[in-house]
Amino acid sequence: MTRENDKVLSIQNLTMNYGGKQVLNGINLEVASGEIIGYIGPNGAGKSTTVKIMLGLIDDYQGKVMIFGQDIASGDPSYKKKIGYVPENAEAYDNLTAIEYLVFTGELYGMDRDAAQEKAERLLAQFELQEVGHSRLSSFSKGMKQKVLITASLLHDPDLLFWDEPLSGLDANSMMVIQEILAQLAAQGKTIFYSSHIMDLVEKISNRIVLLVKGEVVADSTFEELKEMSEEGSLSGIFNQLTGFTEHRNKAKDFVSIVQGDEEYA
């Protein structure tokens, strides 16, 4: 699947030790351009850590990470020019207006100020946010803010996207728009690295699924291949099976009985 010349990202034997705890346990991953990778796993599996390493936020890892053929440990940040990032907690400078924030990120990616401004306005208009472009992000709803952050990650036309829970807070219609944007971007040869807990969505969007459990890659293939390997029909079923979680029904039952039951707290 991966040809040597269009390899966008390559992770070799990545391990990471955090405070005596092994967070990543020898991850190997090769990503070619045009792939949409659903990067999934239970909480604490090491997904965000991997993404942070690739973005240069963490630099005390062991192993080798190459992006666009550049070893990111070299300390030269120029490889980030062609990367777009949506952080997981919708972190932004809330006191800025949407346009200000977009222009600022555009400029950090080396765009010209006026060009960034014009493009930002046009993109916001596509999300029907042109009216609030000059309002502060702190007054935005979660979905609106998420749209701004998605726009910010695309403004400079990057080749590689890291999206961490990008659809949180979006309504069904916006989700469909984003989904379609992703598909079209991938068709243009962009690579998308996508992590989410909404399995139905990952199932629909991704053409390759990487499942991480306790810092190790336990599955790496297309959804169809995954389905053949397992007896479960849906990705969430496969997810449960591969992460060894089968007792959701019992858990729920216990939970509800506690909610209803105890007289002493009633």
Binding site: G56, L57, D76, P77, S78, Y79, Y85, E91, T105, L108
Partner: peptide, 14 residues
């Protein structure tokens, strides 16, 4: 710590 996520993810050196 916001700076980390917002600025350090961009091609700006430390």
């Amino acid at each position: 710590v916001r700076d980390k996520n917002i600025i350090q993810t961009k091609p700006v050196d430390k």
